[in-house]
Design a protein around this nucleic acid. Structure first.
Lengths: 242, 242
DNA sequence: GGGGAGAGATGCCGC
DNA sequence: GCGGCATTTCTCCCC
């Protein structure tokens, strides 16, 4: 069976397609790109996501989102993979000079990743252990998605000042400080208050960010994100589900 | 030849390895995660990057950065893929219950993507066509990476006011406005000026961002990013290189 | 190597 | 659908 037949059948059967080819690639859509000839790994998933990977690096060099239409055709003696997503106005065209290998398989996987150590886990930890911020801190809400912004933790200090806590799971940077500043200003204006405290909670902070933070009379509290996943508990939830 | 032998030889020969397996995955490093059993595509690149993809979606569900050490071993009748990057303190462990297919190939690709339509292309366009911002705008610098910040385009208007232009290739959001505000404040302070204008140049803007922009007496200029790639020119550069 | 910011960012959640 | 924001973000560039 020829490559095109295998390809067409695999897509028809909603299989995941994986192949490698010496190819050159053009893309037009949100931007426009060209990638000269080279060996790549090409994946078409069952949801019609397309990924093209070079032999190195983390990210795909080209890709198309799910629900893209893919077709293979021979033109002037070379194979051409055309992928189009008319809704998103995105188009990709790959000239395949040589196919190194081809695989297709029906894959079943409805599992979701269970992850610990996100910023939300960090704000949960602070909410449940307010003394991590400072003695006498009384949190009111967490993950508050209001018109004031999405405030991680919000509460009162021991002197009944309003406190906005912004969490970052890694280095606190300028953007984190401007974000905190935006929330504090919104709260001040909304509540008509002179004083609202801002605290940036993160494991470390860049020098410029620390300067801007202190310039604005905010403070930095060194806190590490929790990253223990209770796998037994996760497994238990799984078992209940099955 | 068994799977483990093929795997070991491929890695030794610096081949790219692609296989599919029913597996369950644990990760510990910057965070901690668990992914229950399911069918996935697993790629190990020649630079020892590991990617694990579910049959759907754009992003890998698990991954390890380049220069990770990978090893395959049989334990209690099942195969185990262990990947460790001691420098980054990242560890991944996959139990492989069934391998659906396996491929390995020596892939050659040193090409780089040529791309048009980035924010830099947008600031270049504005620098070369200042009337796109407004009549009488005189740009001084672009992509200025100074202590004032990374200002996209910086210049004078027809009344000799300093102007900071921040470009966004898509929707202008709150973050873009706070960024512009930060630059304008820095310039004001550094130059001791009362008035420095700020202009956000983007194809569209969110309502909240527009409100914050006008609250701060900044302005919005609707500009689309250029996304024409001169492939002939790109190809020419290529030919010169070869 | 750290800091700062873009990305064809993607993905998630809330309105 | 858009808006706002985190991401095991990644990548690039500059210091």
């Amino acid at each position: 069976m020829g490559f095109k037949e295998e390809f067409d059948n695999a897509l028809k059967d909603k299989k995941v397609v994986v192949f490698s080819a010496d190819c050159e690639i053009r893309y037009s859509g949100r931007a426009e790109s060209f990638l000269p000839r080279g060996d790549r790994i090409i994946i078409i998933k069952s949801d019609k996501t397309l990924l093209i990977h070079q032999p190195h690096g983390n990210n795909p060099i080209n890709y198309m989102k799910s629900n893209t239409r893919h077709s293979l055709a021979e033109e002037n003696g070379v194979l051409r993979l055309k992928s189009e997503n008319p809704f998103l106005k995105e188009y990709l065209d790959a000239v395949l000079y040589k196919v190194h290998f081809f695989q297709a398989a029906k894959l079943e996987d409805s599992q979701k990743l269970q992850l610990a150590g996100s910023e939300k886990d960090m704000s949960d930890m602070i909410y449940n252990n307010p003394e991590l911020i400072e003695e006498g801190f009384k949190p009111l809400t967490r993950e508050e998605h209001t018109k004031y912004g999405f405030i991680d933790v919000f509460g009162y200090d021991k002197n009944n000042n309003l406190v906005v806590v912004e969490c970052k799971r890694y280095t606190g940077d300028l953007q984190a400080v401007t974000q905190l500043r935006r929330y504090v200003e919104k709260i001040k204006k909304a509540k008509g208050l002179q004083k609202v405290r801002g605290i940036l909670a993160c494991p470390k902070i860049s020098p410029n960010a620390l300067k801007m933070l202190t310039d604005w009379n905010f403070s930095y509290k060194r806190i590490n994100p929790p990253k223990k996943l209770d796998i037994d508990k996760a497994q238990l939830r799984m078992d209940e589900f099955n």
